[in-house]
Amino acid sequence: GPIILDTYRVIADFEKTSKHEINLHTGDLVEIVEKNQNGWWFCQCESKRGWVPASYLEPLDGPEEAEEPDPDYEGDLHITTQAYQAEQEDEISLEVGETVEVIHKLLDGWWVVRKGEETGHYPSMFLQKSDKKN
């Protein structure tokens, strides 16, 4: 049968930063072809196709909370594959190879992680599941 794609509404203008992305304008409707855990979703909008940030989209039929996975306060062990320097106050700075506990895997690709006493958002594309047990 026909594949029915999820339709989302654009909530803010977005300017692409690489050729594989597409520009977005508030109010546009886009159809999602693929949702990537790193927060980039592949979509088609009119005649254009490309990657867009999930953080700039909301589902047509109401808030996204229903889609967000529940937090796991026990923490899911991951290792940082790339360093990142926090740019906003609710983010956390980490070096390569650090073991952290992932508390909340948000759809926008910025996961809430805990390192000792510190918690903050970190790019999920710089995290890799660790096979170490808690």
């Binding site: 992305e21 693929e34 490309g50 990657w51 940030p53 999930a54 700039y56 990142y84 910025w110 594309m125």
Partner: peptide, 22 residues
């Protein structure tokens, strides 16, 4: 281009979205 997602992290949610979430 579905095969090569961007290598840089996506932007954080726009400010108005974060006010809604808060």
């Amino acid at each position: 281009s579905i095969k090569n997602p961007p290598q840089n992290p996506p932007p954080r949610p726009p400010p108005e979205m974060r006010r809604k979430q808060a």
